[in-house]
């Protein structure tokens, strides 16, 4: 038996307010990431960065299905997941720009966005490592019987590293309330995932090894993602253990700032650009009778917010040099060692 749900849409009538929220969030993520890209081009973002352009439906669909007290663990491609949990745009953008008003005071940067107050428990740049951390957080929920669920996002490349398998086994054997979401964008950095993986579905085809059902969802369809995430979150909250969801999607750009993504065939890129999750969702709403004026209002509101965040980030100073030595140890500093 399988619950494989490739290319499916939500069944039954969707809640119009929730669908407008899903659209708004996807537009926010899209336009934030585009602005981040523009700011790279202006050399205002130092160092590398990894954008979620093209993958917004996953971040939006899962986040809106979560309870506010559920936890997110994300990867270095984590801007979207951080915003989706409610972290405001200004501190997130300011963190990318290395400013004092950044989410982490300008000390974390693009790859380590963390906001404990939004239950965004971190972006992790060691591939696969954080799956075990999510299992640990889930275990704390099981201990407390709090009904909270840990959601852990990771890329297709992570499915071939040891920690992925350790975490899946731990979570399954202890029936932990955790939802593992593989954002399969078909490329492990610069390499097609299919060329380095023994099975066609890098996550779903491993599920059986841990007694889990394979779940594949169209990662470019926010409604489908929302439904699959809701089911997995419910399952975890009921005490029925972890889920492994493979959301198939595509990066519109390269792996990182330095990568133009030229190793991907043009026709493949074009086919996926034609399946842009944000424009597809807009068409869906229009087709179902939502007034275009309403969508335009959402879009202009988001544009204004992105502009405001950009100004507030650019105007802020970088952190002071002393910031390097704070919060290393529990005494708040590192003076005893330097």
């Amino acid at each position: 038996m399988t619950t494989e749900r490739t290319e499916t849409r939500a069944s039954g009538p969707a809640d119009p307010a929730r669908r407008l929220d899903l659209y708004r969030l996807q537009v926010e993520l899209r336009r934030f990431e585009k602005r981040a890209y523009d700011l790279f081009m202006r050399n205002l973002v130092k160092g590398t960065s990894h954008l979620s352009l093209g993958q917004e439906a996953i971040a939006a669909g899962v986040a809106l299905a979560m309870r506010p007290d559920d936890w997110t663990f994300a990867t270095y491609r984590g801007h979207a997941h951080t915003l989706a949990r409610g972290a405001p745009m200004t501190p997130v953008l300011a963190e990318l720009l290395g400013r004092e008003n950044g989410l982490l005071g300008g000390k974390g940067g693009s790859m380590h966005l963390t906001s404990a107050e939004h239950n965004m428990m971190g972006s992790y740049a060691i591939v696969g490592a954080h799956l075990t951390l999510a299992a640990g957080a889930a275990w704390s929920a099981q201990y407390r019987e709090s009904g909270q669920v840990a959601v852990c996002f990771f890329g297709d490349g992570a499915t071939n590293i040891g920690a992925f398998h350790e975490a899946l086994n731990l979570a399954a054997v202890w029936s932990l309330p955790v939802v593992f979401v593989c954002e399969n964008n078909l490329y492990m950095e610069y390499t097609p995932i299919g060329s380095v993986t023994a099975v066609p579905r890098p996550a779903a085809d491993r599920a059986a090894a841990y007694g889990l059902e394979p779940v594949v969802v169209d990662g470019n369809d926010a409604d489908a993602v929302y439904d699959v995430a809701s089911a997995a979150l419910d399952r975890a909250r009921r005490g029925d253990g972890p889920s492994l969801v493979e959301a198939v999607t595509y990066r519109h750009g390269g792996h990182s700032r330095a990568d133009p993504g030229t190793y991907r065939p043009d026709e493949e890129v074009e086919a996926w650009l034609a399946r842009d999750p944000v424009t597809a969702y807009r068409s869906r709403l229009l087709g179902e009778g939502v007034e275009e004026a309403e969508l335009l209002a959402v879009e202009s509101g988001v544009d204004a917010a992105v502009d405001r965040a950009t100004e507030e980030a650019i105007e802020a100073p970088p952190p002071s040099a002393e910031a390097i030595l704070t919060d290393v140890w529990a005494d708040g500093g590192s003076s005893w060692r330097n």
Partner: peptide, 28 residues
């Protein structure tokens, strides 16, 4: 068994899980 836990043979998993527990208030 909930406080003295026989884990799988998986050191990355053991310490990683402990970090997650500690992030949420436990002292593993």
């Amino acid at each position: 068994e909930d406080r003295v836990i026989d884990t799988p043979l998986a050191e990355s998993g053991i310490v990683g899980t402990a970090i997650g527990l500690a992030l949420r208030g436990y002292r593993p």
